[in-house]
Amino acid sequence: MGDVAAVVADADVLAADLLVEGPARDALDIVRAHSWMTLLASELLLDDATAVIQAVSDAGLAADWREKITEFATIVDHAAGDHPAIAAAYHGGARHILTFDEQLHGAAAAVTIRDQVETSVKHPAGFVRLFDAESLYTEVVGGDYPGPDRDPRA
């Protein structure tokens, strides 16, 4: 079960993609560059990311980012009070959660998550290191991987 090409980025990774670059940008560039990959999110997850972006930059940038990410991501619903990244992965069937949160990387958390969702929690750098476009393309789409098919800056 689960969508091997679906990724949830927690609010820290979403904000770092915009404002810090580094591994968060590298990881989400992979998603942006492939039309057959999906970024999953929830409104509650985006609320957190928008608040973080506003806190460390400005409200205008946060609002424009929110509009862009809402257009780009597939939005799923979950109950308030759930961890937004885990809940979005659960409800959307994502196989990957990207976060800098070491608590989510912890062994106990990983087991709990796997019991509920067939997903793995990764640091964005780990996701980039392990991403195998050729084999994933063959599994998701079929045939030979043609390379990135979307402009990650569009």
Binding site: A11, D12, A15, A16, L18, L19, V20, E21, G22, R25, R32, D48, A51, V52, A55, V56, S57, L61, D64, W65, E67, K68, F100, D101, P152, R153, A154
Partner: peptide, 30 residues
């Protein structure tokens, strides 16, 4: 608005990963 435009605007801020994590921690655990 393109990602390129957003990233260009964001580049005006010198934000670190630690600041992002602290802001999220403050929001979620207040």
């Amino acid at each position: 608005m393109s990602w390129a435009d957003l990233f260009a605007r964001a580049g005006a801020y010198d934000v670190t990963e630690s600041e992002v994590l602290a802001a999220l921690e403050a929001r979620r655990n207040g």
